[in-house]
């Protein structure tokens, strides 16, 4: 049976699934990368995703254009990010706790809105598969990478965009400085709090898209708590990726590919207990994390509110 796992068709299937599964993780984790690079640990990603998922679904459900739905999800995500900024940056609340508060807020509000505005699980037609011309005709590669809906491509596109913004722009430089040494940034006239607000808002917007990628991209339904803690995995992936976009990509892909692999293992009937199989992605992620994590990458001011010393 094990040899079935290593047929070309199965391997292509695993890669195809893994590439797609990584989408919401990528959006959410890249957004969180911005926040963490500037020194804010936002544990509320899951709540922001739920709000984004609901908003996008609601717009699409009411006949709205799908791009309008994405825009609305981004808007709501940004607002959630702003809220996190008010609580954790301006009021300097403990970041871990305010993040959990934001998560509960998003979970509760999205459920409430769902019950009052929609009421039962419904489906919409989300983004259809968009086979990229020429590219999708490539043998093997074409199916693995270029046979998905448009949000999947967008998620991968965000990787170089994130890396570019962080490394090649003045704002990115400010983000990195603020996350490592806010005093130094402040002494040069960089507003620490403004930078952190902006990164939280960017992170919220991306978490909103992450939610939309579920509700109008991959699943095309909205269900209460449909993210099921996915946002927390995204936070872990930022650590996994050593706060770099490429690292986050690696982490998201590893996690998703192993998840796809374990699904295939089960579907092919390879005799591994399902309880063990479903643990695989988590176990493997932790193992890699402990083997590779380099402390020097961690923003030194992560989780520390900034107050000018007097």
């Amino acid at each position: 049976m094990l040899n079935e796992l290593f047929t070309l068709a199965t391997l292509i299937g695993i890669l195809h699934s893994g590439v797609r599964l990584a989408t919401p993780y990528l959006f959410a984790a890249l957004g969180e990368t911005f926040a963490q690079r500037s020194g804010v640990l936002n544990l509320g990603v899951d709540g922001m995703m739920l709000m984004g998922a609901f908003t996008a679904f609601y717009v699409a459900f009411n006949g709205g254009n799908l791009w309008l739905a994405v825009a609305a999800a981004i808007g709501v995500g940004c607002l959630m990010g702003l809220l996190m900024g008010v609580v954790s940056v301006t009021m300097q609340a403990e970041q871990g706790i305010s993040g959990i508060g934001l998560y509960l807020f998003g979970l509760g509000l999205s459920s409430l809105l769902f019950k009052t505005l929609i009421g039962s699980v419904e489906s919409v037609s989300g983004f259809p598969k968009l086979a990229l011309p020429l590219l999708s005709d490539l043998p093997i590669i074409g199916y693995i990478f270029f046979d998905h809906n448009v949000l999947v491509y967008l998620a991968y596109l965000m990787v170089p965009v994130t890396a570019f913004v962080l490394n090649r722009t003045t704002f990115g430089l400010s983000i990195r400085a603020v996350g490592h040494n806010p005093e130094a940034a402040d002494s040069l006239g960089v507003s620490v709090n403004r930078v952190r607000y902006v990164t939280l808002i960017i992170g919220g917007g991306l978490a909103g898209v992450a939610g939309a990628s579920l509700s109008i991209g991959l699943l095309n339904v909205f269900q209460e708590n449909m993210t099921n803690g996915l946002g927390f995995i995204a936070v872990a992936l930022v650590y996994f990726g050593s706060w770099r976009a490429v690292g986050v990509l690696g982490g998201a892909l590893l996690f998703s590919l192993v998840n796809a692999l374990q699904l295939w293992v089960q579907v092919l009937g390879i005799p591994i207990p399902s309880d063990i199989a479903v643990m695989l992605p988590y176990v493997l992620t932790i193992v890699v994390l402990t083997l590779t994590v380099r402390q020097i990458q961690q923003p030194a001011a992560l989780t520390k509110p900034y107050e000018r010393g007097e």
Binding site: T170, F171, N181, A184, A300
Partner: peptide, 26 residues
């Protein structure tokens, strides 16, 4: 206590907080 960001290069530390000749790009 030096106001430098350890993980950045000298140039990045100097450029920090200043407008760039290329607008938003460093």
């Amino acid at each position: 206590h030096f106001m430098l960001v350890d993980t950045l290069t000298v140039t990045e530390n100097v450029a920090l907080g200043l407008p760039s000749s290329r607008g938003p790009l460093l």
